[in-house]
Simulated scan of single mutants.
Amino acid sequence: MNILVTGGAGFIGSNIVDLLIDNGYDVIVVDNMSTGKKENINKKARFYNVDITDNDLYKVFEDEKIDYVIHHAAQIDIQRSINDPVFDAKVNIIGTINLLECCRKFDVKKIVYASSAAVYGDPEYLGVDEKHRVNPISYYGISKHTPEHYIKVYNELYGLKYTILRYANVYGIRQDPKGEGGVISIFIDKMLSGKNPVIFGDGNQTRDFIYVKDVAKANLLALENGDNEIINISTNKATTINELVNIMNKIMNASLKPIYAEPRKGDIVHSYLDNKKAKDVLGWKPDYELEDGLKETVEYYRLKYANDEVAADKGKLRR
């Protein structure tokens, strides 16, 4: 079975690729390397440096005889979507349509699409379930929701099966604090350097932090389950940003106090997603508590930064 993972050199995509290969699947990675990293690409995957908006994507489908698609290539920065909505729409909407056309033309069996909690906007109730009204408050939320409609119509017109996974706030190993920048990776980057983390707002805003390995498992299960369903992937728990800093200080044996800044446009104040449907339909549940996932993530970055320093020192010696 040939599975194409778009964005497979990126943070979430590369973790999914690793899990698929560990489970015996043949995996093809498409990534334009704008935020993806060469070191993230599993050596057993077949890699194509292709943008999902390009016609070159059709050649990948023609050559590889793709059975399933897991779609994670995206523009994911809310602030960039506000500053450059045209680019945001080109990647997330037009890119997905181009991918769907490839699926239609080459008889792909199913697409698993990575959507976002951002489609819900400001919650009318907590935890937010899949029946909650969709009302995005950022262009990113709009550009992640719009492909859901296209995917549904491709199913109705051409029989392309799908599972749409709406993620809470994903964190974990390989998240780039200087690129795709989730709050946890940014905090770890600063705090490991002894710098105070910056919180936009008073720190009492809440998020639902889901570990990337739990997200990868949900994608694996969605290949064979949850046909034509929209499913939240979350912990069903709210954590304040202040609580997050306290847990990270504990893990790092530090006492760094946050610096508070003005709230940012497009940021939601309180959010956590109900995950009952994922348990019922996918047979999925998160394996990682927040502190466990954070410990693994902090250890990953500690080792990475240590290795980077050694490599930099060796480079100086060569010169």
Rank of each mutant, 00 (worst) to 15 (best):
L4T: 00
V5C: 02
G8L: 01
F11M: 08
S14H: 12
N15T: 11
Y25F: 12
D26S: 14
V27N: 08
V27G: 05
V29L: 00
V30C: 02
S34F: 05
S34T: 09
G36F: 01
N40I: 01
N42C: 10
N42P: 01
K43L: 06
A45E: 02
F47Y: 15
Y48V: 00
Y48Q: 14
D51A: 00
D51T: 04
D54V: 10
D54S: 15
V60A: 04
F61H: 00
E64H: 02
E64D: 02
D67W: 10
H71N: 08
Q75H: 09
I78S: 12
I78D: 11
I78W: 02
K90H: 07
V91H: 00
I93A: 07
I93M: 11
I94W: 15
L99Q: 00
C103I: 09
K105Q: 13
K109H: 10
V112K: 04
S116N: 06
V119C: 07
Y120C: 03
E124M: 10
Y125A: 14
L126K: 05
D129N: 12
P136Q: 02
Y140L: 15
G141A: 07
T146A: 15
I151N: 01
K152V: 15
N155E: 13
L157R: 12
G159I: 02
L160Q: 03
R166T: 02
N169R: 06
V170Y: 03
G172S: 01
I173P: 14
V183S: 10
I188G: 13
I188D: 13
N196G: 09
P197W: 01
F200C: 02
N204C: 09
Q205C: 08
T206A: 07
I210A: 03
K213R: 14
K213W: 13
A216N: 04
K217N: 12
N219I: 02
N225G: 03
G226M: 02
D227P: 06
N232L: 04
N232A: 08
I233N: 01
S234H: 04
K237P: 04
T239E: 05
E243C: 12
L244Q: 01
L244D: 02
N246L: 14
N249Y: 11
K250H: 07
N253G: 12
A254P: 01
L256A: 04
K257Q: 12
I268A: 13
S271P: 07
S271L: 15
S271E: 11
N275A: 09
K277M: 03
D280H: 03
L282C: 06
G283P: 07
G283F: 04
K285R: 13
D287H: 10
E289M: 12
E291Y: 12
G293C: 03
G293I: 00
L294S: 09
K295V: 13
E296M: 08
T297E: 04
Y300Q: 01
K304A: 06
A306C: 04
E309V: 13
L317D: 08
